[in-house]
Computed example of a mutant assay.
Amino acid sequence: MKILYYTWGEWMKTDVVSTLESLGETVEVFDKKLENYDSDSAFEACLQEKLKAGFDAIFSMDYFPVLSTVAKDAGILYLSWISDCPNLTLSSKTVTNDCNRIFLFDEMLYKNLKARGANVRHLPLGVNTKRLDALLGPLKEDMTYSHEISFVGSFYQDGYRQLEKVQNMPEDLRGYIDGVVAAQNLIYGYDMVSELFDETKVKQLERIAPVNLGDGYEIASAEIYRDWIRKEVTVKEREELISDLGLLFPVSVATDSLPEMCSNIANIKNLGYVDYINEMPKIFRESKINLNFTLRTIQSGLPLRLTDVLGAGGFLITNYQPELPYYFENGNSIVWFESREHLLDLCAFYLRNDNSRGKIRENGYNIVRKAFSYERLLGILLSSIKE
């Protein structure tokens, strides 16, 4: 199969392209900047010209309606592997195009799109342990650590928080949303936002902050607003948990913007932005404990950060996600927490128990090396479209 791979600067490009080639596919990369996800005449003309060389499919990480439209017109497949959630482009009416083959790492999102009639399949995100082994060397029992506890990720201090932009929000609505955020922050593995932020509250917010993605999209404003709240839950959760941990233990944070409530705690050290390919894996390997706090917009699936850490041979404590038991056993190949107090207790325990930590990280590494390898997952992807 001859595949045109569209890249938008995603981290996974090198691993995906090299794996597709190792599986016997012919791959060319297309990297023209896309100005509009739905319609971009200059981009489309360039892409159509490129396709004249003869391709069987267009491939991208995440979903781009314009790629689906062009693939449909050209009579070829469009392969999309979703790595982000929310992914508003999945609300485009183009998702049901016959040319589409969409692969989703989140089972709940998969079920929602399947119900809409899209050609979808559930497929977790992968990791290239061969590349990471070449970078870091083999796992060792007698590790030398540079960090006690590490968190690599964003605190979303930029324009990510849409609720902060809403003007003239009534105090009763603001207070209610704050209550929903606080309640959801206490619960892992179950989405309360859908129930608590009901249609009455949706209509109240809609009057002061209307949203409209255009005629080409099929998404209720209710789900957009609920994702705004889920994002706010994530922001508060990360700030509060890192602050709580920093009052008890040395914590290394790799982020481009550290919140004020964390920067004032002496135990918390900001490493700044780190490169995904070379620097980030070293932090994972050289930390006694790595932390993952999944975006609350990911309701069931396993985020890329989880496989990043385990693939680098890192020990991971993560929040609970419904799909974790599909692949992992708690306390054997990964550790998950279910409350703030539980997280603090787990960190204290595993910082003291090197042997237990070493066995768990080795088991976790062996699982992702096999079950989450790009060779296996892209093999499944390619086999499914040839059925």
Rank of each mutant, 00 (worst) to 15 (best):
M1S: 14
M1F: 11
W8S: 10
K13N: 06
T14A: 13
S18D: 06
S18F: 01
G24S: 09
E25M: 13
T26N: 13
K33A: 13
E35A: 14
F43T: 13
E44Q: 15
C46P: 03
L51Q: 10
F55I: 08
D56E: 14
D56M: 04
I58K: 12
M61S: 09
Y63P: 00
P65D: 09
L67Q: 10
L67N: 11
D73V: 12
G75K: 14
G75D: 07
I76D: 11
L79H: 03
D84N: 12
C85T: 10
P86M: 08
K93A: 05
T94W: 05
N97T: 03
N97E: 12
R101M: 05
F105Y: 15
Y110C: 10
K111L: 10
N112V: 06
A115S: 10
A115Y: 05
A118T: 09
V127K: 05
D133F: 05
D142K: 15
D142F: 09
T144W: 07
Y145L: 10
E148G: 02
I149P: 00
S150Y: 09
G153Y: 07
Q157P: 00
D158T: 06
E164Y: 01
V166R: 01
N168H: 01
M169Q: 01
D172A: 11
D178I: 02
G179I: 14
V180F: 06
V181A: 04
A182L: 10
Q184I: 08
E195W: 07
E195Q: 11
K201E: 09
L205E: 08
E206N: 07
R207C: 07
A220W: 05
S221K: 15
S221Y: 05
I224D: 09
R226F: 05
R230P: 05
R238S: 02
E240L: 09
L241M: 15
L241K: 14
F249P: 12
V251G: 07
T255K: 01
L258I: 09
C262E: 11
S263G: 10
N264A: 15
N278T: 15
E279L: 04
P281A: 01
K282S: 04
N290K: 07
N290L: 05
N292M: 03
N292T: 06
T294P: 01
I298G: 00
Q299L: 14
A312F: 03
G314F: 05
L316C: 02
P325H: 14
N332C: 04
S333A: 11
F337A: 08
S339N: 04
Y350H: 08
L351A: 07
N363M: 06
N363W: 02
G364T: 08
R369C: 00
A371R: 14
Y374F: 15
L377E: 02
G379E: 07
G379S: 11
L381K: 08
L381A: 07
S384D: 12
I385G: 00
